[in-house]
Amino acid sequence: MKVLIATDKPFAKVAVDGIRKEIEAAGYELVLLEKYTEKQQLLDAVKDVNAIIIRSDIIDAEVFDAAKELKIVVRAGAGYDNVDLDAATAHGVCVMNTPGQNSNAVAELALGMMVYAVRNFYNGTSGSELMGKKLGIHAYGNVGRNVARIAKGFGMEIFAFDAFCPKEVIEKDGVKAADSVEELYSTSDIVSLHIPATAETKESINYELLNKMPKGAILVNTARKEVINETELIKLMQDRVDFKYVTDIMPAADAKFNENFAGRYFSTPKKMGAQTAEANINAGIAAAVQIVGFLNDGCEKFRVNK
């Protein structure tokens, strides 16, 4: 069996070493494709492999067509919208993610971005504090729960809404469960976004919803670019000079945001939520363990396609 690590943004060496240890201990061969610059390099590399570990790399129908021996793809991370799940299923390939491995890293970044925003992007002017602010967590999964844990240390009042998480699960963590997404936004000084990009959520963060937020509101996005209706967010920020937007996913209209909302907008140059040594190692090794479990025993615990 041959396992490929295909990463245009490579894992840290210590992560690759950990992956190699897991794969080779199972008697499999590990091969690397790092910092590739053309899709053809990926298509050539997948031709004879049985398993692939990726990060944000695009695995589409063309890749599945080229990978005749492929049995499993594992996305080292929580999000998996960079993999064509329908094409995977059509080719008989199992797709998994590694939920929870990057959660603390993303949560710490979200809180860091909140501090950056309330302190006016460290521009030398007087800002405000997180203590006493109402924080709304939109989606209470692994990252959202870590955000709540850290935010408690700042003395924030924490609310959460998750259509798929029972209120009692949220409230047992000492977090107040909002009854609706509208209630969450109208209550919160700061909203931290953690929803996935799905047919239902794409562009769901719009003018009407954001305009419910109190004066001086801040939206923090460490989730996905696609959930934001950029046109309506721009209109909102034009209408409300009190509103700030900080994001770990650069908008398509980044230049327009920078031009029009200096001092109220910040985007990282590339997605950095999982870019820590710890998350890098955890997610990579988890991916290797899941591949070995699948190939050896048929374990599909983290399967995300049907």
Score class of each variant (00 low, 15 high):
residue 206 N to A: 13
residue 209 L to N: 05
residue 177 A to S: 14
residue 186 S to E: 15
residue 189 D to Y: 08
residue 164 F to Y: 14
residue 192 S to M: 12
residue 137 I to Y: 10
residue 144 G to Y: 03
residue 167 K to T: 04
residue 152 K to T: 09
residue 169 V to S: 14
residue 208 E to N: 14
residue 142 N to T: 10
residue 163 A to T: 14
residue 207 Y to G: 02
residue 154 F to I: 05
residue 175 V to C: 07
residue 128 S to T: 15
residue 180 S to I: 02
residue 164 F to I: 08
residue 163 A to W: 06
residue 192 S to E: 10
residue 217 A to L: 02
residue 203 E to H: 13
residue 146 N to P: 00
residue 215 K to Y: 11
residue 215 K to L: 07
residue 206 N to Q: 13
residue 183 E to S: 00
residue 217 A to F: 01
residue 203 E to P: 01
residue 198 T to A: 01
residue 140 Y to M: 13
residue 197 A to N: 12
residue 211 N to Q: 12
residue 167 K to Q: 08
residue 203 E to L: 07
residue 146 N to T: 03
residue 150 I to H: 06
residue 204 S to V: 08
residue 181 V to Y: 05
residue 207 Y to C: 05
residue 180 S to N: 04
residue 206 N to D: 15
residue 152 K to E: 09
residue 136 G to I: 01
residue 149 R to F: 10
residue 200 E to G: 01
residue 183 E to M: 06
residue 192 S to H: 08
residue 194 H to P: 08
residue 160 A to R: 04
residue 134 K to N: 11
residue 211 N to I: 10
residue 176 K to G: 00
residue 134 K to A: 02
residue 201 T to R: 11
residue 136 G to C: 05
residue 222 T to M: 09
residue 154 F to T: 01
residue 139 A to T: 15
residue 159 F to R: 11
residue 181 V to Q: 15
residue 136 G to N: 05
residue 159 F to A: 09
residue 185 Y to D: 04
residue 134 K to L: 02
residue 133 K to G: 00
residue 204 S to W: 07
residue 208 E to R: 14
residue 156 M to D: 01
residue 159 F to G: 00
residue 203 E to Y: 09
